[in-house]
Each structure stands twice: as C-alpha cells, then as structure tokens.
Simulated assay, not measured.
Amino acid sequence: MSAVHPDDRERIFAVQQTSTDSIEPLDMLWRIADRNGNYRWFHTHSEPFIAWCQS
C-alpha cells in the first residue's frame, strides 16, 4: 500500500475490505505513485474471487 496516495489509503482499504466481506464487485478511483514518486489516477473495477475448499 506504500504506492497508494496517503489521502486514499484508508478509503481504499475500507472499500476492498467491504467488497471482500460482501463478495460484491468494487469500483474505485485512486492514485498510485510511479517509481519517480509521481501520482496518477486509476479507475479500478474488480470482483472478489473466493476459492471454496471442500474436504
């Protein structure tokens, strides 16, 4: 998470946790630093993948 803009970290963590807990897709806009420390905006859509184990 060190590449994520400091102002976005708490929100991004909460959105990802909510998506995982609810098994619902997420859609977010956030800033990520490149190797030179410059931030760029990213629009991300993802869906949690839960692998169910059967014994």
Score class of each variant (00 low, 15 high):
residue 28 M to A: 05
residue 15 V to D: 03
residue 23 I to C: 11
residue 19 S to I: 00
residue 11 R to K: 13
residue 35 R to L: 12
residue 23 I to H: 14
residue 50 I to M: 09
residue 12 I to Q: 09
residue 13 F to T: 09
residue 51 A to Q: 11
residue 34 D to P: 02
residue 32 I to V: 13
residue 6 P to C: 00
residue 1 M to G: 15
residue 45 H to L: 09
residue 53 C to H: 09
residue 19 S to N: 05
residue 23 I to Q: 14
residue 25 P to T: 05
residue 48 P to N: 00
residue 19 S to L: 03
residue 52 W to M: 08
residue 18 T to K: 14
residue 38 N to P: 00
residue 8 D to W: 03
residue 13 F to G: 09
residue 51 A to F: 09
residue 16 Q to F: 08
residue 43 H to G: 01
residue 44 T to D: 10
residue 12 I to P: 02
residue 51 A to D: 07
residue 21 D to G: 07
residue 40 R to G: 07
residue 50 I to K: 12
residue 3 A to E: 10
residue 31 R to E: 06
residue 48 P to H: 03
residue 34 D to V: 01
residue 55 S to M: 04
residue 19 S to R: 02
residue 16 Q to S: 03
residue 38 N to Y: 06
residue 55 S to E: 04
residue 55 S to F: 03
residue 3 A to Q: 11
residue 7 D to P: 02
residue 12 I to G: 03
residue 52 W to F: 13
residue 17 Q to I: 05
residue 41 W to E: 14
residue 36 N to M: 07
residue 13 F to L: 14
residue 35 R to P: 00
residue 47 E to F: 08
residue 45 H to Y: 12
residue 30 W to D: 00
residue 39 Y to D: 06
residue 23 I to D: 13
residue 36 N to W: 08
residue 37 G to L: 01
residue 26 L to K: 00
residue 3 A to R: 13
residue 20 T to D: 09
residue 16 Q to P: 00
residue 6 P to D: 04
residue 47 E to M: 11
residue 49 F to G: 00
residue 34 D to L: 03
residue 15 V to Q: 03
residue 19 S to A: 15
residue 28 M to G: 00
residue 52 W to C: 05
residue 4 V to Q: 02
residue 53 C to E: 13
residue 54 Q to V: 11
residue 49 F to R: 11
residue 40 R to D: 07
residue 14 A to W: 11
